[in-house]
Structure formats: structure tokens, C-alpha cells
Simulated assay, not measured.
Amino acid sequence: MGKQDSEMLKGVLEGVVLAALARRPAYGYEITADLRERGFADLAEGTIYAILVRIEQRALVDVEKVASEKGPPRKVFTLNDDGRAQLAEFWTTWGTLADRLEALREKGQ
């Protein structure tokens, strides 16, 4: 992924994580692995964990500590109603922005 790709992704990564959690509850590494499988190959785990801390502080997820066979308990994140509302707003904003960008591209050709 190039520098421009990385910079663009930073602006939407919270929405991407919320979208991943809309599919099912998960812990940080599961989210990272899922997103990597979906084409976000250059994502660093630390980036995802920072976003999870932020969305937890904003009360967009519910968190449950689940025992792990390896090491300390894992924090499993579940999208709550506020998180679903935030995700819906993200998709609305994304759609509007995508439409505007497409219009710019079409006018430039």
C-alpha cells in the first residue's frame, strides 16, 4: 500500500473496524486477521488496538473479558446500539463522499 493509500485509510479506519464488528463480536487480533483477509493487508495490530480503545471510550461497543487458553483474558468487543448508529452515519457519509468523488472523476475525463 502506498503512502496516499495509507493516509486515505486512516480517515476511514474507525468505520472499517465498526463494520467488522457489525458482522460479529471479536477481539483485536481477530479483527486484524479478518480485515487482512479482506484486502487490508498492511494493517498493524497496534493501529486496530488504538481504534478499539477509542471506540470503547466513546461507548460504541460493549466489552466482555473472556478467558484465553494462552495468556490473559481477551477483550471481546460487541457493537452496541450507539455503535450501530455511528456505523450507519459512517456509511451515509461514505456514500455521499463516494458520489461526490465519482462526479469529480467523471467531469475530469
Rank of each mutant, 00 (worst) to 15 (best):
37 E>Y: 07
59 A>Y: 00
75 K>S: 15
35 L>R: 07
47 T>W: 07
52 L>R: 05
45 E>V: 09
41 A>V: 11
45 E>I: 13
58 R>Y: 02
73 P>F: 08
47 T>C: 07
42 D>H: 13
71 G>C: 09
71 G>I: 09
49 Y>H: 12
47 T>R: 14
52 L>D: 01
46 G>N: 14
32 T>M: 11
68 S>W: 09
75 K>D: 10
51 I>D: 02
73 P>V: 08
36 R>H: 09
65 K>T: 10
76 V>N: 05
40 F>S: 06
62 D>P: 00
35 L>V: 07
62 D>E: 06
75 K>R: 15
71 G>E: 09
53 V>Y: 04
51 I>C: 03
37 E>M: 12
31 I>N: 01
68 S>F: 09
53 V>G: 03
54 R>C: 05
61 V>P: 00
64 E>W: 03
75 K>L: 11
66 V>D: 08
50 A>N: 13
59 A>N: 01
35 L>G: 07
45 E>K: 12
31 I>M: 05
36 R>K: 15
42 D>L: 09
47 T>K: 11
48 I>G: 04
69 E>I: 08
37 E>R: 14
63 V>M: 00
59 A>E: 03
37 E>C: 08
73 P>T: 08
51 I>V: 15
50 A>V: 03
47 T>A: 09
50 A>Y: 01
60 L>A: 02
75 K>G: 08
52 L>A: 06
35 L>M: 10
55 I>T: 01
69 E>G: 14
53 V>D: 06
63 V>C: 03
74 R>Y: 12
58 R>V: 00
60 L>Y: 02
64 E>P: 04
44 A>K: 15
31 I>S: 01
75 K>I: 06
35 L>W: 06
60 L>Q: 00
47 T>G: 07
74 R>A: 10
43 L>P: 02
63 V>G: 05
